[in-house]
Amino acid sequence: MPLLRILLLAFPLIELASLIILGQAVGVGLTLLWVLFTGIAGLMLIQRNGWGMLQRLQQQMLVNRSPQAVLKSGMWGVLAGVLIAFPGLVSDVLAIPCLIMALRHRGGGGGPDGGNDEGGPRTWQRGEYTIIEGEWQAGESPDRDDRSRLSDR
């Protein structure tokens, strides 16, 4: 726990040092422009991901699907926006993997037909048949009800 407190105190100092080094390298004007640009971009990213996540959550709930992939994508997007909005270069670099994760989880999961997102079995349509992904272990015998259903076909 003390290490976390030290890191939380050191992070703004590291960010300040990175901005000072950037200011010495490219000038004060460009450094201020960078801070202004990343602040606006971060706020736009937070707003876009927040509203987009709410809309996608509503769509998932309407079709009775698990909202796990939507929440995961939205969480990474909002975290990236917060890191970009925070002034400094280190937080901007840390936002890049968050953006990648947000884009990676954007589409959800499933098979060729879209399938279910993470949190449930995946399904595929093959002609008139629906294939549901599942598990089977050798040596297991089907239940009595399953045998009667299989013999009816």
Rank of each mutant, 00 (worst) to 15 (best):
Gly107Asp: 13
Ala95Thr: 01
Ala85Ser: 12
Ala95Gly: 01
Ala85Asp: 02
Leu103Ser: 03
Met61Tyr: 13
Leu89Ile: 14
Val63Trp: 09
Lys72Gln: 04
Gln60Val: 11
Val70Asn: 07
Gly111Asp: 15
Gly119Trp: 12
Leu57Asn: 14
Gly110Ala: 09
Gly107Asn: 14
Ile96Gln: 07
Leu103His: 03
Gly119Glu: 12
Val70Pro: 05
Gly134Ile: 07
Gln58Thr: 11
Glu118Thr: 10
Asp117Val: 03
Phe86Asn: 08
Asn116Thr: 09
Leu79His: 00
Met75Glu: 05
Glu128Lys: 13
Ser91His: 11
Ile131Gly: 08
Ile132Tyr: 02
Thr123Gly: 05
Met101Arg: 14
Ser66His: 11
Leu94Met: 07
Asn64His: 13
Gly74Met: 05
Ile132Glu: 08
Gly88Cys: 02
Ile131Phe: 15
Val63Gly: 03
Val93Ala: 10
Lys72Ser: 14
Val93Trp: 00
Leu71Pro: 02
Val93Phe: 01
Gly108Phe: 07
Arg65Gln: 13
Ile131Ala: 10
Gly120Phe: 15
Trp136Glu: 14
Leu57Gln: 08
Gly108Gln: 12
Leu79Arg: 06
Leu71Met: 10
Gln58Met: 02
Leu62Thr: 13
Met101Ser: 09
Ile131Cys: 13
Gln60Pro: 05
Met75Gly: 11
Ala102Trp: 00
Gln60Asn: 13
Asn116Pro: 09
Trp136Ala: 15
Trp124Thr: 07
Met101Leu: 15
Lys72Ala: 12
Ile100His: 00
Ile84Met: 11
Ile84Val: 06
Gly111Tyr: 09
Gln125Lys: 04
Gln125Met: 08
Ala80Leu: 05
Ala80Asn: 02
Ser73Glu: 01
Pro87Gln: 14
Met101Val: 10
Gly74Trp: 06
Gly134Arg: 04
Gly77Asn: 01
Val90Gln: 02
Val90Tyr: 07
Leu79Asp: 02
Ile100Gln: 02
Val90Lys: 03
Val93Met: 08
